[in-house]
């Protein structure tokens, strides 16, 4: 029972610091902040639904999937999707054009294709910049 530095569960980091380091490199918190940007996935969304509505985790996961696939199908079928205070998705058709391989410089044709455009709402833009929405 020496110094137990763990504030929260940091399994990997804790293991390292336990390796009788003569000089304490109190890097525990630094490691955390360095990798502070983490990736949110379907599981996190399902967890939020579970916490908010109280549906089982399994059912919450199914609803996340249902919402995403409903949006997916609408976009893929060419329907514009507008989610107020979040943003909108629409399809843009791009014509064929001549591109270049950036590595070799050789020109290569780029075929006509359809791409998804996402336009974030003013509310979302404002939230990302730590403000309240100006107008939407």
């Amino acid at each position: 029972m020496s110094q137990n530095v763990s504030e929260k569960a940091l399994p990997a980091v804790e293991d390292l610091s336990r390796d009788e380091g003569a000089i304490s490199t109190n890097s525990t918190s630094t490691t955390r902040t360095a990798s502070a940007h983490h990736t949110v996935t379907r599981a996190d969304l399902a967890d939020a639904v579970h916490r908010r509505i109280g549906l089982s985790r399994a059912e919450s996961g199914e609803f996340v999937e249902a919402v995403l696939s409903e949006i997916f199908n609408a976009i893929v079928s060419g329907d514009d999707v507008k989610l107020s205070s979040f943003g909108s998705f629409h399809i843009r058709s791009k014509g064929e054009r001549v591109g270049r391989n950036p590595k070799t410089g050789a020109s290569a044709p780029i075929t006509a294709r359809r791409v998804v455009m996402f336009k974030a709402s003013n509310v979302l833009r404002a939230r990302i910049n730590g403000q309240r929405a100006i107008e939407d």
Binding site: L45, I53, V64, F86, L124, R127, I128
Partner: peptide, 15 residues
């Protein structure tokens, strides 16, 4: 809830 969660994540700078 789903849209809010995505918004919150982006507001934190998360992906």
């Amino acid at each position: 809830t789903i849209l809010d969660e995505i918004t919150l994540a982006l507001a934190r700078g998360d992906r």
